[in-house]
Design a protein around this nucleic acid. Structure first.
Lengths: 136, 136
DNA sequence: GAAGTAGTACGAGTTTTTTCGAACAGGCGA
DNA sequence: TCGCCTGTTCGAAAAAACTCGTACTACTTC
């Protein structure tokens, strides 16, 4: 991992309305994101579908809350599932416009598209952040 | 339809925070609701799943906006689908906790559980109200 | 180059959701 | 009682989503 703690020390505030989720300035060595819908092409029904799965809700919630909203590898989550299943779920999130993924050498890192989602569907991410996973 | 306009004339404000959707006082002749989850048993993932379908989003949006949030029969929507399909979709909405249904003689009327959803998932209904159906 | 690592792509099996016809239930009015 | 009307239930077919093993790619390190 390349300096997550250092970056997390001074997050910028989200542009526009103040918000509970911190965002971070782009860095010069950041690779281009994988294919994703443009902000205005994000569809509510697809975001809802992406967030209707407990595993994916967990992913988004942990991206929002556990590590100051910065990007993480698939492996970081520690889910006990086959890799191909995780690939599938991360792809659903990205194609719905919920997350952005970038390739850093070997690993693919994900982060929530906080600003885009806040503009298109204000308040939605708060619901995810406050979600309580079903107790067994 | 039994007096929708008259009832809509003076809606009460939602209890708690002021809100864009009007709610209505219960009437003495109101039948018991069909089986539905209790407020605290409404699960975000199931609400998301229920709202991930364009037809169901349309139903909820029109219940919210077109008739001052009061209840309507399945037929009122005028969808060009077999009746059994509509029954299915209304059932998905009710079982997820999004709508409440009551039997009035022949017809079954639906309304959005505005207060319950506002308490559990504040802001979610605004997203539905502002949703723009995909242009063909 | 060989090995190790992070994750993808494909495809099959399974499950869930959706769709829709056909038959049914039950209130209401003539 | 006989239709008519609103909507349900059942069942089957079709479509979509999920799971997961296997094989593969690509980068890094030795």
């Amino acid at each position: 991992m390349t300096g997550t703690k250092a970056r997390a020390a001074r997050p910028d505030a989200t542009s526009g309305a103040a918000h509970r989720f911190a965002t971070f300035p782009a860095r010069p060595d950041t690779p281009e994101p994988l294919d994703e819908p443009a902000r205005d092409d994000i569809r509510l029904e697809q975001v809802m579908a992406a967030l209707s799965d407990p595993l994916r809700l967990t992913i988004v919630q942990r991206l929002l809350l556990e590590a100051e909203a910065f990007d993480h590898t698939c492996g970081w989550f520690g889910f006990d599932r086959p890799k191909s299943s995780l690939t599938h779920h991360f792809k659903v999130l990205r194609e719905a416009g919920v997350t952005r993924q970038r390739q850093y050498g070997l690993e693919r890192r994900s982060q929530v598209r906080i600003e885009d989602l806040e503009e298109r569907f204000p308040g939605l991410l708060d619901l995810v952040a406050d979600w309580e996973p079903q107790e067994i």
